[in-house]
């Protein structure tokens, strides 16, 4: 199987979103917060987000980073959240955003040491 990832199209490693790599964290999150799978990336959450004005971050991106395995960005973005809950209020799909954020913080062990 190792050789298989090199098979086919050539995308430069830095640019590649490798969707063949198992994304354990995402699976775990979906189990913990099933509504996460309902996100349609509409961006309402980011638009209303308290932190997006200054950081460009927002729940849509956090979810996307998780799903695509861009964990470094995800960890950074998680720290900006003020937990205000507006993303929950505007989400048209009823994604339990705030629960997802604490769970992600827990999974990625974003703790102060």
């Amino acid at each position: 199987m190792i050789g298989m990832t090199d098979f086919g199209f050539k995308i430069h490693k830095d640019q590649l979103l490798d969707q063949d790599r198992p994304n354990v964290a995402y699976k775990e999150m979906i189990e913990k917060v099933p509504s996460l799978s309902l996100c349609i990336s509409c961006g309402s959450c980011t638009a209303t987000c308290n932190s997006s004005e200054m950081t460009g971050m927002g729940f849509r991106k956090l979810h996307l980073y998780l799903k695509t395995g861009l964990y470094v960005n995800l960890k950074r973005g998680l720290k900006y959240c003020q937990y205000c809950g507006k993303c929950w209020l505007v989400c048209p799909r009823g994604v339990n955003t705030r629960k997802a954020i604490v769970e992600m913080k827990r999974i990625f062990e974003i703790y102060k040491t």
């Binding site: 004005e53 200054m54 720290k79 604490v102 974003i110 102060k112």
Partner: peptide, 27 residues
């Protein structure tokens, strides 16, 4: 003990006029 980073708030340009009443709407 969850981590946070609110340093970005320092870069915000807050209006700081002297006023008798501060009206705080909240999120």
């Amino acid at each position: 003990k969850m981590n946070y980073d609110f340093s970005y708030l320092d870069e915000a340009s807050w209006p700081a006029f002297q006023s008798r009443i501060v009206f705080f709407g909240g999120c």
